[in-house]
Design a binder for these strands. Sequence first.
DNA 1: GCGACAG
DNA 2: ATCTTGTCGC
Length: 226
Amino acid sequence: MEVRDLHPWPTSAAEAKAIQDGLRPLLDLGTPGPAEPRTVAGLDVSYAGDGTGAPLAAAVVVLDTTTLAVLEESVAVGRAAFPYVPGLLAFRELPTLMDALRALKTTPDLLVCDGYGLAHPRRFGLACHLGVLTGLPTIGVAKTSFVGTFTPPAPQRGASSPLVNDDEEVGRALRTQDNVKPVFVSVGHRMSLDNACRTVLRIARHRLPETTRRADRLSRDALSGA
DNA sequence: GCGACAG
DNA sequence: ATCTTGTCGC
């Protein structure tokens, strides 16, 4: 698929934050997004070490939303492009993730990212960044909380409670299975929070969406050479 | 100032 | 993210 060119790369945390602030106005947060996406892509990254330059593998797996069958897979290997700094995760993984996306023959209807979208200190997490660079609807699904507070949702699958930060609902704690810890869903680009949660429930057979599980396994295998 | 902090 | 054993439960 076609993706936008990468912007100049930051060499400091201050520059990275400035880039996030500059790109944030490009976000489309007013459209509900596809009600019936036919294809959904999951993205994830595995690492071999720490710090800048650590070897990593970025994977993208495209699934049929209805059957959850794998339609296409793409993996790219590279190096961490930035140190890990909470709030600047995108700068670590973006170049290799973009390589994997560029190699895709099909263009997914939605991108499900491992991490956050608007539930971010500057409202511009990895899912937002990937949304601006690809132009596609994106959402973020994270395993742990980062910003905001929430009250535990009811124990039933489908229950949710708002993730609040600065008096804003920046995401939702969503129970994807009965009696299982909730995941944290937030919007990235061209998608409403309601639609994001509804879609996550449709593709989740376990705690994490199938998209994320498939991408996690693919990136891990690519790093181990198998 | 101190701790917490997506992956 | 990654380093790691056994164990409880569907």
